[in-house]
């Protein structure tokens, strides 16, 4: 078992045009920066990207949008990105907007081996259009399918050579869910340590879900909304 690879370029080298990708992160927090840079560099196209957000104009998935590498986005919130909105309104980009909890739980279901979930989110709205519903205890629920993704690309704080992952603070968000859901899961980490160095009591993603792992060259960790408190 050798999951450790040398670079982001090597991690994504077999991702082909038309692939379905999951990308972890919430806003710009906890996004796989190094893999996104490598995807931008190698220029593969017609991608379907499942990610809560679409980055901003000049960072995150926004960089892939700018190069028109993305055919379809599946997200819950896509504000803060002018180029995204332009491509959407012009019809160049297909977008499926789904409730955030539904997005998270469809990843979870994939990682838990469950084909579908029932959720009340979106009942009575256009999200429910064409979907099977079922009543439990007098309340209506939508049936939502588990996601299928060719590759899940996630970012963790620390990882070990067996693929075990630990996330930091709110940079956890969708990362452990997507890590469970990819046919092939690629993890980039800030610090890669030998197996045995992480506390087994505190592993967030067990290595069984992770196929490839590498330490990212550097992390910009851009802040989207710097908000500070005034000194009193």
């Amino acid at each position: 078992m050798n999951k450790v690879i040398s670079s982001a370029e090597e991690a994504i080298k077999d991702i082909q045009d038309n692939a379905v990708l999951m990308l972890g992160g919430f806003g710009l927090c906890g996004i796989p920066e190094n893999c996104i840079a490598a995807l931008v560099k190698n220029g593969i196209k017609n991608l379907t990207c499942i990610s809560n957000n679409a980055g901003v104009d000049d960072f995150g998935i926004g960089l892939m949008l700018k190069q028109k590498q993305v055919r379809k986005m599946i997200s819950s919130y896509v504000g803060e990105n002018a180029e995204f909105e332009r491509q959407l309104l012009s019809g160049e980009l297909e977008v499926e907007l789904i409730p955030q909890g539904t997005l998270a739980t469809r990843c979870l279901a994939a990682g838990y081996g469950m084909p579908a979930i029932f959720t009340p989110a979106g009942v009575g709205t256009e999200v429910a259009s064409g979907k099977e519903t079922r009543e439990f205890n007098g309340k209506e629920y939508l049936m939502e399918y588990a996601f299928e993704a060719d590759f899940a690309i996630v970012k963790a704080w620390k990882g070990d050579t067996d693929g075990n992952l630990v996330y930091k603070e709110t940079a956890r968000n969708f990362n452990p869910l997507m890590a469970m859901a990819g046919k092939i899961t690629i993890a980039e980490v800030e610090e890669l340590v030998p197996a045995g160095k992480l506390d087994p009591n505190n592993i967030h993603t067990p290595g069984i879900y992770v196929h490839r792992i590498f330490q990212g060259l550097s992390y910009e960790k851009r802040i989207e909304q710097l908000t500070i408190r005034k000194n009193v």
């Binding site: 819950s76 919130y77 955030q100 539904t102």
Partner: peptide
């Protein structure tokens, strides 16, 4: 305006 529902649909449904 097409920014998306974020978590609002999940919150109001439950």
């Amino acid at each position: 305006m097409v920014k998306g529902m974020g978590g609002a649909m999940d919150l109001v449904a439950s």
